[in-house]
Design a protein around this nucleic acid. Structure first.
Lengths: 344, 344
DNA sequence: TTGTAGGCGTTATCAC
DNA sequence: GTGATAACGCCTACAA
């Protein structure tokens, strides 16, 4: 290779370049960056000048290697397009950023196998902690995570046996609560529409079923599910085909999320079916639109942003050895009954 | 420190641990991982066995340091909660992931200063390329990016003088086209409602203004903007206050995005104002809901997923020295007129 | 407060 | 096809 003149022109400046220019040792430059208070004003100024002049940016790989501190939190979510994870992520990013951590984010596409591969990728970055979604990790994935010897938070749902820490809420209880309210509102024949059918959706269905069975109102023929990803369009389709196959036997529909519910609502409008008098409708996740659409849509709200904040906070505190709380945190939920289930 | 027994029990296994166990040299292990075809079957098998037995995960920091290849693409977007970026991100992640790159994502909160700080953070990870949003970087930020000597793609909007590469579309032209269609539909007094008012929104407004001015229909008193972030709720509020302050002088509203437009639509329903006959309404970004709501909402669609795919593809190809296309790519847009602007 | 020596885990280079 | 050696850029320890 060429003999490289460092600094301004050549390759990227290093700590040593800065040190030479400021006529100090490398470690002093390192201190100016990481522990400015441990350096005299004079040297700090000189070093800072050199840093600015050279446009020096520390090499985090070298830093991680030498210090065993990467400043990275690895995060795995099942989908980038599901709005639900936006709020959670925002909470995580806000806390992580404020505490000086970077977030390395991966998308597992709802696949445990892909998750395993992505977790491996994350771990190769020497993250100081991990936040992952749910509890359906493969055995290999669980082993990797334990072996990694870093705090792990599983989020979104409440787990029986978390790997380490856990923040979420019971989707089953939430499903139960909502179904209970629907029945209480006076609806008699309640169908279920579900898509994707991941763990959390199945728990909602379980809760729904439980509530209906308690009043002997559960009918398996009124459960319509598909592995396809949820969308408003799909909600419309499922609603239409449900109507066709049930011949008016249904007077309310529990949709596994608000995408489907909004789709069903818009479709019912086009089919001239009155919501809520002819058809009750509810969703899950409480999108912003749900409160504003007409009729407004009943849904289950969970403090997603807070969940992200909590997950990241737990980690940051554990890393500082300051965490006092429980390992499992129930973030709760809230059933929000609105016009779409107001049978009267 | 303790004399550490490596492997199964102690600290994390390293390349050397694997090498010892497989009775080969470290470099052979490295080859098995990075260039498996350059190692004999026999050794490859032995090494793989040791890797599995020890649960070895390569240390990417060390690898980056030694090879000057981090496998990281840095991405900066202005907001994690704006749905618009989901699709773009999905495109980026899909391509990056398929090509073996990791994505380090930061949120700049629509602030050039924060962007500068975040870009510094990204650059300290030695990314092999950068994807950033828009063209409002600070001078310092631009200098850092140039100095970094990696491919940079600015995305979302079309730029006069991109730092390097650019994928997007003209928000001004798009705004113009939509406004033109509104006028063509027969609306006479068209208001503008805008929030956040970032660069791209301002360009939409400029296009809107241009189209109206050409027909001497622009009225600055009918432009309502706020720096607040967009939301459905805010759309409703802005619509309501606009109605109050204009006294029925307006017969159509151009909303700077679909959040506001949906909010305005739902609010008009509550106010018993008929859309589209009494009030035309259009948005921007074409959310999925816009096509399904009743009346369906006119909007401007841009291929966001494709934009993300294109940005990442350009980078991956440039990194392989295989990119043939232009440095500036116009991804285009499409005005989708629906029921909400059908004055008849 | 400042500096010196050594090593973090991996890969490039050049031998064998 | 395989291996020894020397970086990569920085930080921890210890010393002055």
């Amino acid at each position: 290779m060429e003999a490289r003149k460092r600094g301004q022109s050549g390759r990227k400046a290093t700590l040593v370049d800065v040190a030479e220019r400021a006529k100090v040792s490398a470690i002093t430059v390192s201190r100016v960056i990481n522990h400015p208070d441990k350096v005299s004003d004079e040297l700090r100024r000189r070093v800072q000048e050199a840093i600015d002049a050279l446009g020096y940016i520390p090499n985090q790989s070298a830093s991680s290697l030498a210090s065993a501190r990467s400043g990275v939190i690895g995060v795995a979510i099942p989908s980038l397009s599901n709005i639900v994870f936006n709020d959670v992520l925002r909470g995580i990013y806000d806390v992580a950023g404020a505490s000086g951590y970077k977030v390395l984010l991966v998308d597992t596409h709802y696949s445990p196998l892909e998750e395993e591969s992505m977790v491996r990728t994350l771990l190769s970055q020497s993250p100081e902690a991990m936040i992952i979604t749910g509890g359906e990790q493969t055995g290999a994935c669980q082993r990797m995570l334990k072996n990694a010897n870093v705090p792990v938070v599983q989020m979104m749902e409440l787990l029986e046996n978390p790997l380490d820490m856990n923040v979420g809420f019971s989707h089953q209880k939430a499903g139960y609560s909502m179904a209970e309210q629907i029945l209480k509102a006076g609806y008699q024949r309640v169908a279920f529409i579900g898509a994707r059918m991941d763990q959390r959706v199945q728990q909602r269905l379980a809760g729904f079923r439980e509530a209906l069975e308690q009043q002997s109102r559960f009918d398996n023929k009124l459960v319509f599910t598909t592995p396809q990803p949820s969308s408003i369009a799909l909600g419309g389709e499922l609603f239409r085909s449900m109507m066709a196959s049930t011949n008016g036997a249904v007077d309310a529909v529990f949709c596994c999320n608000d995408d489907l519910a909004l789709g069903a609502l818009f479709e019912s409008q086009r089919m001239n079916i009155n919501v809520p008098t002819e058809m009750g409708l509810c969703g899950f996740n409480d999108f912003e639109a749900s409160a504003f659409v007409n009729p407004s849509l009943s849904s289950v709200y969970a403090p997603r942003y807070d969940m992200g904040v909590k997950a990241a906070t737990m980690i940051v505190e554990v890393l500082k050895d300051e965490y006092q709380g429980e390992k499992i945190v129930d973030i709760g939920y809230e059933v929000r009954m609105r016009q779409s289930t107001h049978l009267k």
